[in-house]
Design a protein around this nucleic acid. Sequence first.
DNA 1: TGAGCGCTCGCTATATCCAA
DNA 2: TTGGATATAGCGAGCGCTCA
Length: 408
Amino acid sequence: MFFEELSDSFEDPQSNELQIKELIHQALLDSIPGQFTKHPDYPVYCNRTEYLIHSQNEGLPLFPQTFPEVLLNWAGMDSNTVWTKEDLLVIDLETTGLGRGGILAFMIGLGYYEDDKYVVEQLFLPEPDAEINSFDRLMELLEQKSVLVTFNGKTFDIPVLESRFMHNQLWINFRKKEHIDVLHIARRLWRKKAPSCALETLEYYILGQIREKELDIEGSLIPQTYFQFLINGDPEMIRRIFIHNQHDVLNTASLLAFICEHIEHPVHSGLDYRIDYHAVAKLYQSQGHHHITKHILEELIQQDILSPDIVYDLGMIYKKESDFDRAESCFRQGAELNDVRAIHELVLILENKRKNYPEAIDVCMQLYQYLSWSYPQNPKKLEDAQKRLSRLQLKLDKAAILTTKTPR
DNA sequence: TGAGCGCTCGCTATATCCAA
DNA sequence: TTGGATATAGCGAGCGCTCA
């Protein structure tokens, strides 16, 4: 392999080791743009790439202009503080595996905004012993930046860093930092629209980006590729890991910027096929912004965008406002779309508000049929519908008796 | 006045998903 | 392959309303 031919030519093992190390360093310098840190013992290989604010990431909104209140609240951040893009630090690790203990973060990808640029810095360990030195730059940036931005970092990157810091007897309370985990907000927004919420899938569906397979590397191959590099010193595949990590750091920021731009005024700027407006409405609803939720849903229906979820949720808002005419109209639309929840709500309105028992019985029978098709494994729902039917029949009978007894 | 119903809230268990 | 965050479903308790 890369330095197999050389290994026999050195007689002194110590000098042999040193020369191999130098050889690896030179190979990295030749293949991947970057430079070594000044650490005398185990330097770290650093690459820095700048993206100009106006050139954008191939037309992507790489730079968040504002941070919508709904996003800040969702992330548990103070919405009275003025956050700027300069507060953000994107972190993405490449490691020797999953899990926690015993894995090494051999590459730390960092992204941050500086003046009119987005800077991606990558810290790579040519040998595992360089790990502690890679934390110098990370700690420096952590002191300057107050908001961490990751993709699944709450579960993966941050626990790994915590574990590696502890292993090196260093301590930083990552949990005290503000943290936007883009995976979780992306899941809320695209769980129903995108085939998955993996970063690469969202890049394709939302940002319109396709990674070039011959330049990139599959995530699952990364650990073994690093181990191979430690054995044979060949930087070719490591170059792919640099590219992979750079995409991750870049697109995590792009995705966040896209989210910021599109949840602020969701429908005002016209409909965008990439947005799940119902999910955006639900996000507002979860924070008690019912008027905005209602406005988005009404706008969607006005634009003829009908789905069982949209009409059901709007119906429920009208119902809470005691606007039973509009609520009924929504639930009727939902019933036409065969939505069991809407049919159930329609029965409630017909029974309790309209006292229209004959129609309530008809709709309740329809509900019973749908329940027996859709939820045959849930006898409780069927039982409830059966009980309601009996009660409605009783009410209808009583109403009939009252009508016949009423003097003319 | 009590029964029945709808609604909300909190709790627990379970399922799903994503990172390398 | 591991493990944490999150969503969802199911359940019971408590409260208020309606009606006989």
